[in-house]
Amino acid sequence: MKGDPAKIRVTLSAMGHSAQYFPGGSGKVEIYVTPPRTLEGILEDLCVAKDLFMFALVEDKKVGFDYVPRDGDEVVLVSPVMGG
């Protein structure tokens, strides 16, 4: 919850077609979580399957779903590529 000093703010953005399966379908959520919480755990809290994404990016660097976000992190979740 905003204003709770024990929580950190994390922004999750979904890139690509899996964005439609985010809460509200907007592909972007800002949440407050009690650390330490892995990305996988945060997605579980949001009822979003981690298999909807290939990997995550923080500051343009790939991270795994075991990544533990820090306060203010903006995490980009990348949808699977299709085609070729």
Binding site: M15, D51, D60, K62, E74, V78, P80, V81, M82, G84
Partner: peptide, 23 residues
Amino acid sequence: HKPGFKTWTPYGTAEVVDWVNKV
């Protein structure tokens, strides 16, 4: 300016191999 744009291009469609295998 889409988030993740920079990461998409270097790998192309081959990027999805691990994911398809994982699921």
